[in-house]
């Protein structure tokens, strides 16, 4: 048996050398993304590199906004600031609640906002979160959060991203990386990304033929939402759940939207959190062609309309809370 153990140890050592060697070589040659089980995207679409860097410096925050690209393209921090709320948009590409939890846990070590607004987009509640994990790990230093994100997802791709990121940061620190520019987008301070596209790229035919889905939440995401609620309560932070608006056609792709709606309402009620679903607000009139740049994301025209309604809601909630605290 001793011979077997030695043999296994030798094979394992050879494997580690070959594995790390292959990743390093492919990284240097710029071909690492061609591996089916490895993804590494630094400074890419979504502006996570800038956002994560800026998040480290934010101080005296009123509102922290969390969620996917729906969020960082919808909540305009400039509009909130005009109304007296200092906010930071901490949305990142395809961010599901399990990633949100680790980002928030890390954020709260430095800064405690008064309010948190968290998006509960159906797709994020049923995703595994690999895409978001790759985005965060690639664009941040290798720290406890990055390791926890990889470990929680238990996906080989995230472990590989973690290794690649670690190897790369040995010779090129993340602080020296630069964000790429994208012609139709602009990163605005405090996490918001403004889109310059005025007309929806998806025509009515494409919108009408979007893939239908049935909402089915994933345990990992539901449990993470509960952990986020607990974290907010422990830190005495006021939490609000929202569903950011999408085109009517996109909403209709969810065959069981009522079930989804019931599910998130129950999740909010059980935890005594308020919930606003902006896909079910008749006073928010959004045009699929002129207020969105694709089926899911608002353009600036839509952002202005949406933020007007959101700010009204938020001020009411905020004043209500102030009134309650005065009593």
């Amino acid at each position: 048996m001793k011979k077997l153990f030695i043999r296994i140890l030798l094979v394992f050592s050879a494997f580690v050398i070959i594995y790390l060697g292959a990743l390093t070589l492919l990284l240097i040659l710029g071909h690492v993304n061609k591996l089916p089980n490895a993804k590494y995207k630094v400074g890419g679409y979504g502006y996570t590199l800038l956002r994560l860097d800026e998040a480290k410096k934010v101080k005296e925050l009123d509102v922290l906004i969390l969620g996917s690209s729906h969020v960082y393209r919808a909540f305009d921090t400039r509009i909130l600031e005009k109304h007296g709320f200092k906010s930071f948009n901490y949305g990142t590409s395809a961010q599901p609640p399990y990633v949100t939890y680790f980002l928030l846990r890390d954020f709260l070590k430095r800064e405690k906002p008064k309010h948190i607004v968290m998006d509960l987009y159906w797709s994020m509640l049923q995703k595994t979160g690999v895409e978001a994990g790759v985005d965060i790990i690639s664009n941040s230093e290798i720290n406890e959060t990055a390791i926890d994100i990889a470990r929680e997802s238990d996906d080989i791709m995230l472990y590989n991203t973690l290794l690649i990121s670690y190897i790369r940061q040995l010779y090129k620190p993340i602080s020296t990386d630069e964000q790429k520019d994208f012609k139709n987008d602009q990163y605005v301070q405090n996490g918001f990304v403004e889109s310059f596209i005025k007309q929806n790229a998806d025509d009515s035919l494409k919108l009408a033929s979007l893939k239908k889905i049935t909402f089915k939440p994933a345990d990992i995401q539901v449990n993470s939402v509960k952990k986020i609620v607990k974290l907010c309560k422990e830190n005495n932070i006021d939490l609000t759940f929202v569903v950011t608006p999408v085109t009517r056609e996109k909403k209709e792709t969810v065959l069981n939207y009522n079930e989804y709606s019931r599910f998130i309402n129950q999740l909010a009620q059980e935890n005594n959190i308020r919930l606003i679903d902006y896909n079910q607000r008749p006073d928010l009139e959004l045009n699929s062609q002129t207020d969105f740049y694709d089926a899911s994301h608002l353009n600036q025209s839509g952002v202005v309309k949406f933020n007007k309604v959101f700010i009204n809601d938020f001020i009411k909630l905020y004043n209500g809370k102030l009134a309650n605290s005065d009593k």
């Binding site: 043999r7 030798l10 094979v11 394992f12 050592s13 050879a14 494997f15 580690v16 050398i17 070959i18 594995y19 292959a22 591996l35 089916p36 089980n37 490895a38 996906d155 080989i156 590989n160």
Partner: peptide, 17 residues
């Protein structure tokens, strides 16, 4: 020893898990 190590590395890099 290295050949077996390479086989395991290949499976991990190219397999679906």
């Amino acid at each position: 020893v290295f050949a077996y190590g390479a086989v395991i590395a290949f499976i991990l890099l190219f397999g679906r898990f």
